[in-house]
Write a protein that binds this DNA or RNA. Structure first.
Lengths: 146, 146
DNA sequence: GCGCCAAACTTGACTCGTTCAAGATAGCGG
DNA sequence: CCGCTATCTTGAACGAGTCAAGTTTGGCGC
């Protein structure tokens, strides 16, 4: 759970300005985990009707770089954002409707970060995506995304 | 290693036609692992100068669906393709230049497929992306992609 | 071999998430 | 409270990928 004060402190510490659009973006993502940019824009405009899409895009980038938000983008999906950061959790993605759910790491953080052959890469993160069908799509097998 | 005969047999078995563009696309991806669509188009046109981009897009889709090719798409990257399929290997991706390398699974296929909480999802694949810096970008730290 | 016909291809326009650019606005240090 | 500049608004542009209409061609039956 992120309070506006937490976010303000992090922004200030990085010499970034504390603006209404930025706080509203964090609040929106916190309320709608895994939301895409369009949903974030809509949620932000519920509070601040005149915010431009560009301000939201910019805020999402800035906050992701800062580490306040995490950006995920499964193949074939638009960018999605969440406030759960730094806890090594992964994602379940539905092949049919694109729904995303959280999954805690089955193994250990260290093991996850150790492939058998690194080819000289300096690895800093292991991202896992579990592909499958969400409960709804697995049941009534024909639910194409609207 | 995939021969044109192997591919032809797979296509025929699926009641799909064996066409020059399709064979050329497989050959191109086999020669250029992790190539993006643009590179595949260029490689195919070295053999068949008049192939349209649409034919390549369509062939890549068809062959991926068939299981001849595998499509990967790390966040922030365009689609890339490879002929190594069905061997549960994963990928190292460079944050700086976007280079992709293969990494064999550190653990076991089964373990990889078992998150601690599935939220009711019916999982069929676990995809792992190791993010970091490739040897070149880790050395001379300033190599922005051109 | 010959001809049929649907799958596959060519051509060219189009979508839409995201980025770029120029000028207006508003945090925040002094 | 003032001024500087990061940030925001506005609006155009970009590009990977898709859609659609019409033409070509692989593979089957004869």
């Amino acid at each position: 759970m992120l309070t506006p004060d937490d976010v303000s402190a992090m922004l200030r510490q990085a010499s970034l300005r504390v603006t209404k659009p930025r706080l509203a973006v964090v609040a929106a993502v916190d309320k709608l985990p895994h939301a895409d940019t369009e949903s974030v824009i809509a949620a932000v405009r519920a509070e601040l009707p005149h915010v431009s899409h560009q301000a939201v895009y910019d805020s999402l980038h800035t906050l992701s770089d800062l580490g306040v938000l995490r950006r995920i983008q499964p193949a074939g999906s638009v960018a999605r954002y969440e406030t759960r950061v730094g806890d090594n959790h992964h994602h379940l993605v539905c092949r049919s409707c694109g729904a995303v759910a959280d999954a805690d790491c089955a193994i250990g953080e260290t093991l996850c970060l150790t492939p058998s052959n690194t080819h000289g890469f300096r690895i800093d993160e292991a991202e896992v995506v579990y592909w499958g069908l969400c409960p709804r799509c697995a049941d009534g097998d024909a639910s194409p995304p609207p």
